[in-house]
Simulated scan of single mutants.
Amino acid sequence: MDSASDRPAEPVRRSPYRGNDPRTYWKSAVSGRAPDGLENLYAKKFAIDETTRIATAGSCFAQHIARNMRERGFQVLDLEPAPRQVSTSTGNRYGYGIYSARFGNIYYARQLLQLVQEALGQRAPSDAVWTRDGRYYDALRPAVEPTGLETAELVAAHRRRHVHRVKMLLNRVDVFVFTFGLTEGWVHRESGTVYPTAPGTIAGDFDPDVYEFRNFGYADVYEDFVAFRELVHSVNPDVKFLITVSPVPLAATASGGHVLPATVYSKSVLRAVAGDLATRFDDVDYFPSYEIVTSVFAGNDFFDETGRNVRPEGVDLVMDYFFAEHRPPNGHDDGAAAARAAEPSPQRVVEGEEVFCEEALLEAFGP
């Protein structure tokens, strides 16, 4: 009888998983680690440094990205600044200094696409002026004038200036940072114009014969962003895009279902779109802020008692992962950390979400 040593050795079984990087396995990459201890979570596609001209836009959570980048010395463009005599806090109430132009929050890819089409003279929005209590509002950014304007003509003049500034921004930007926020929106039936909030929330009045609810699906969101990217490249071919998904749940759903599965559906669509865009295009990078805040291993520690507002610790952790790859200009990271320590953290984040987030206003219509 042959001994074991005389038998031929069994060939090593091949597997596409054998020898892969430890970060590709849950056990070695996530299990037993604290939320701030995930190694190689994000690897940048392209560099962002102090010479990079950055534009920021998106949903409420995008405000944190813009603020943190400014604090750390990055060149975040502001093509529509507040008048010099206006304080920062007052300017923020009127939509100044939050993003790279006075867009207000841009929750949907369709909203972003239509804005760029308008800036390039390819689209004129319909039903673009709403009223409330005798005052007039830009329906496409109703929160930037909290008390409205005196006439519809003045609203139109403000919008022409805004759209001109957006066109200037497209020509100057090197990296466009956009945070996907929602899939549920309200659309003008006849023209397809999409609004950042439902008519009747801030201004205007809801008429089901004029407006309809739209829950944008995967194909809608994907195709809208691809069209946006192509339009931007038509005037500025070298622009790159850094995209994220907001971890903030829906304040309310118009789908008729429970808000929890409605939130999961919306975020799942946006996350799938973001992943496919980053896979398809070399000039599109995805940063996993959504996963950092919402992944089950982190528990619920990064949300306050409402389950919607992201705590300062969550925002800071997201930005720490980001700036580990995109190193701030020399000396600015320490200054930003000191500013965070000196500022009352809960007030910093909660106020930002409530004051500058139109969607949060929907809670006022609930029980």
Rank of each mutant, 00 (worst) to 15 (best):
R161E: 13
N300E: 13
P125Q: 13
N330Y: 14
N40L: 03
E223I: 05
V239Y: 15
L250K: 08
A119I: 10
G91E: 13
G307L: 11
L41R: 06
E363D: 14
L115S: 10
V86T: 15
S268L: 09
V30I: 08
L231D: 05
V187L: 10
S100G: 08
E150I: 12
G73M: 03
A128R: 04
G134W: 12
D138Y: 00
Q75P: 00
R102M: 13
E50Y: 00
R93W: 10
P261V: 04
V284S: 02
F297G: 11
H64Y: 02
S191C: 08
G314T: 00
D333R: 01
I48H: 02
V173D: 14
D205P: 02
E359F: 02
V245D: 03
P16S: 07
E363G: 06
E230W: 04
C357H: 15
R160H: 11
F46K: 04
Y321R: 01
V284C: 02
S255F: 14
F180V: 05
D49K: 03
V264S: 11
F365Q: 13
A57G: 06
R271F: 04
G204Y: 08
W186T: 04
S15W: 00
K240S: 09
T56H: 01
A227M: 07
Q114F: 09
D78W: 10
I243D: 01
G37L: 04
V30C: 05
T131R: 09
L242E: 00
Y218W: 09
A298L: 08
F46A: 03
Y222T: 14
F302T: 11
R72H: 00
L170G: 10
G352F: 03
G204R: 06
P346N: 15
T197R: 06
R189T: 11
F180H: 09
Y222D: 15
S246R: 07
L231R: 10
V239Q: 08
G121T: 12
S28R: 07
G314S: 09
G275M: 09
G181Q: 01
V350P: 00
H162G: 11
V296W: 07
A338Y: 02
P196Y: 07
R160V: 15
S87W: 12
E358S: 14
D301S: 11
A336D: 03
I106S: 07
N20T: 02
V293N: 05
N20Y: 01
Y265G: 01
G181L: 01
R123G: 12
A57H: 08
L260S: 06
E343F: 04
S295C: 08
Y42M: 00
R135T: 15
V293H: 13
V226I: 12
F46D: 01
D224W: 09
L169D: 12
